[in-house]
Nucleic acid binder design. Structure first.
Length: 153
DNA sequence: GCCAACGTTGGC
DNA sequence: GCCAACGTTGGC
């Protein structure tokens, strides 16, 4: 059982949007970064995901989801109508993958990026490293517990 | 809107 | 295979 963090711009897709989906599930498509893709392929059913809001007034972890379907080819890469279309993608040798996640909970008290930076217990966390731009990354179990405590869960 | 950091592209 | 140019991310 591993822990992950996934970023989403709330203007595009927020944790409330996830909670409002049928079955509270959604495909996590559109990832077009190899490192992020590789992490998604490591994800196992039941793994925990910290849902992070980025590029917004108050970036931070806003809740928790879980992996309900392991990596499978991202169909948007093959769809010319999609914003995520990749003309170099080959249906016989998929390059991009997605997973399905399901809403678990929204934190009553979101854990802001500023709060995480200010917590010495989270020194070294991948998210906080300089220049980090990955939209999908692993989180250590200890880090997850610390964040959970900060959310007063 | 600015800009630092990083990934990707493409010419050579 | 190098590396400059470019595009994107994402905090501020």
């Amino acid at each position: 059982m591993k822990y992950w963090l996934m970023k989403s711009e709330p203007d595009a897709f927020s944790i409330d949007d996830l909670a409002a989906r049928p079955g509270k599930r959604e495909h996590w498509d559109g990832v077009r970064n190899y490192q992020a893709r590789n992490f998604m392929r490591e994800m196992k059913k039941g793994d925990t995901v910290l849902f992070y809001h980025s590029s917004c007034a108050k970036p931070g972890v806003v809740g928790v989801a879980k992996i309900v379907r392991e990596a499978y080819p991202d169909s948007t890469a093959l769809d010319p109508e999609s914003d995520y279309y990749d003309p170099k993608s080959d249906p016989d040798n998929p390059r991009w993958f997605m997973v399905d996640i399901q809403f678990q909970k929204k934190y009553k008290q979101p854990v802001s990026l500023a709060a995480m930076k200010a917590n010495p217990l989270l020194d070294g966390m991948r998210l906080l490293k300089r220049g980090n731009r990955l939209s999908v990354m692993p989180v250590e179990a200890e880090e997850f517990q610390i964040i959970r405590a900060m959310a007063a869960e």
